[in-house]
Design a protein around this nucleic acid. Structure first.
Lengths: 406, 406
DNA sequence: CCCATATAGTTCAGGCAATAAACTAACTGC
DNA sequence: GCAGTTAGTTTATTGCCTGAACTATATGGG
């Protein structure tokens, strides 16, 4: 059984026994959440996995059952010697919602506490330059529909997360800048998305959320990787020790603005020669001699067709993007001491043509640091941001189950 | 009174009341360590600052006194109404030692728990290609001398840290690679440096240690900055939220190997166009048309003379280094979301000529991110690594005072 | 000089959380 | 049906923090 995330919370406040209780509630819940799917651990197994005594586990499990976070299954291990234990599982009648606002769509998805997807819906719409309030209202409608749909099966949504393509913070309810939406300094009323949900809705950068989704698909606890997502811009998310690294103000991971070509073009961020100016969607299309697409799937298809058809200009454009991606990853890998890369967005779609140049770039600029097998394609696909935002709410809940007590 | 660093330790082990005790011991000790120098807080003030009751503080302080971490001063606040309190201070008869092995010297320094420097000594010697064991033995002699010197005043050294110019880990007692020493995969017997000291000696990268020293000189608790140190190579240390960011394997912050010139020269690390190939000492001297120095002070003086004398080639070399340093810092700032830079090593010495090009580079490659006033020169100077290594031991002690109990 | 007032620090009963050990519960296998 | 085995609960104990009462030590006014 996998041991769960760190238990004791950092604090400058005096510690007392309620902290011990909270820490151990998280420890128990984490042990159950992290057990292999399908294997529903018993109190005795949780006791062995966590090091807590059976008595303590019993008491903690009781609290978690009362909080509605766990449920008891039937007796397990029939056929073995001795009294069979009672299997414990996360309560699948509790759920979290992931939401996303992007350039040309809004989306919502509901995951139950075990991580099963209960609901998924996208609404295509053009949000470029749209009023934040109206987009948020639209999303609230979508969220309400999602909630009532799962509600019919008795599932309660207790919290969620929202992913947006831009810089967030401070205070986790504000978009500082979302250039592709044309939004600047927008305060969001996140509470309106899930009215009366017991937990707050938190805000994420889209690439950070997608990185979190990737984290759930990784084996092991101490994942370390750089997630790089190719979109109109180039986003990134850093996962260090199984945690999203957000930096002091919450906007770490902006790999798209690592300088890869000091003598290069001006970037939308005001800088020069950023990765985005070479490997962003518009840059690749321009270099490939293709018109920039409005709906991203259609445009991407034309690029893929060109590549498959042996179009030299298209191949050169992607190769150039790959090499420069290699430079950015090499620099980031050295600064962050990270040795694995996950490709998302169009980088995932272009994997076949991109990976060679990327590995060549890595070999040239940071030899011996990122092995071939350490460059992988995002598992979560297009739903990464939604699933990551939801998954993050899931994880906060597992790490702080006391929030749902009483 | 400043509140101290986070108290509750992260843990995957069951929490119990001893964790509460340890956390609160650290809270109390941290409050006293973090109080303004000269102001020795009383139990009542500690109680107010931490939120612990007077009863708890009394009990915790008693433990800390018995562990030899605190001492009581005379009565304070005479002249005020009411019973005067007893001032508490860190026990200045306990101390930690910072040590450094570098290319052309070894050094040791002793700090008492209040941070006062009690002893400082450098021994010049050429460690290039020397046997690690013999260098360590030499350092152990220096450490022993330091210990007996402060010992004569009744000061006991309880722990320490060692800084080395190379990559460390895993396990914090191993040098993976120290190119300028010619060392690879060296296991260090750190215990031999401070025999019978109750706390272990920890190992740091030199630039990381210097970054920690810088942290002590910063006002406020939540410092975030990138420390960049120019030596033969270019080292770096990342401080995020008042903590050294070490990355998954302990070697984050290697700003020297950020790619700043994709078409540039081969680096000693095997990469291409790393910052080090432009802004390392050898690179600057070569570009300036000066012979690479053996003793660094002498060589640096000739460069400074050339700069002051208006030598155009020397100025161009430093300007080039500054601009490219700007590129590396711009990339790092975006990835790590950091907005302040501290210059150390020869970057500090060359500040006058370097800062202009550096700021210009930052303005070009990451506009609006690092303000002019956010680029500062290291306060700790040449002793940064030693002071940082010692300071880190100090901090571990304040964060985990229970280690010295019994 | 004495006493009111104010603040510092200690003592003590109470509550809570984890532990260990004893106990009850439920199943297998002979 | 009973021994053996494992699951989970009950109970006594320990340790730590809290709040309130208490002691200690100062100032200052009459």
């Amino acid at each position: 059984m996998r041991l769960p995330a760190p238990a004791f919370r950092e604090s400058v406040a005096p510690g007392s026994m309620v902290d011990v209780r909270r820490s151990n509630l998280a420890l128990v819940l984490g042990a159950i959440a992290g057990s292999d799917p399908g294997l529903h651990p018993t109190r005795a197994q949780v006791s062995a996995a966590t090091g807590l005594t059976k008595a303590s586990v019993s008491s903690l499990v009781l609290d978690l059952l009362e909080a509605g976070l766990l449920r008891e299954l039937g007796l397990t291990a029939r056929g073995e010697r001795g009294r069979p234990g009672v299997g414990l599982a996360l309560n699948t009648l509790r759920a979290v919602m992931g939401m996303e606002i992007n350039v040309d769509y809004i989306a919502a998805g509901v995951l139950d506490l075990s991580g099963t997807i209960l609901f998924k819906e996208v609404r295509e719409c053009d949000n470029r330059g749209a009023q934040p309030d109206s987009v948020l209202a639209e999303l609230a409608l979508l969220a309400a529909r999602a909630r009532s749909t799962v509600g019919e099966q008795g599932v309660e949504v207790v919290g969620g997360g929202l992913a947006v393509p831009g810089l967030t913070g401070p205070g986790r309810a504000r978009i500082l800048a979302a250039p592709n939406l044309g939004w600047t300094d927008v305060d969001l009323d996140l509470g309106a998305l899930l009215p009366e949900a017991p937990l707050v809705v938190s805000l994420f950068n889209e690439a950070n959320a997608a990185a979190l989704a990737e984290l759930r698909h990784r084996p092991g606890d101490d994942a370390d990787f750089l997630f790089v997502s190719g979109e109109v811009g180039v986003g990134g998310g850093l996962v260090v020790g199984g945690e999203l690294f957000t930096g002091p103000a919450g906007n770490a991971g902006e790999v798209g603005h690592v300088v890869v070509d000091p003598g290069g073009n001006r970037c939308s961020c005001g800088g020069t020669g950023c990765l985005e100016t070479v490997a962003g969607q518009d840059a690749i299309f321009a270099a490939a001699g293709l018109p920039p697409g409005t709906g991203r799937s259609a445009a991407m298809r034309s690029l893929l067709d060109a590549l498959a058809g042996g179009n030299a200009q298209a191949r050169a454009a992607v190769e150039r993007a790959g090499t420069h991606l290699g430079i950015a990853v090499a620099s980031t890998a050295r600064v962050m001491d990270i040795g694995a890369v996950v490709l998302g967005g169009h980088f995932a779609v272009l994997d076949e043509w991109l990976k060679g140049p990327l590995l060549a770039g890595l070999a040239r600029y940071a030899p011996g640091r990122v092995a071939d097998g350490d460059v992988t394609v995002a598992a979560a696909g297009e739903w990464g941001a939604v699933l990551g935002a939801a998954g993050s709410a899931l994880r906060s809940l597992v790490d702080a189950p006391y929030l749902l007590q009483e």
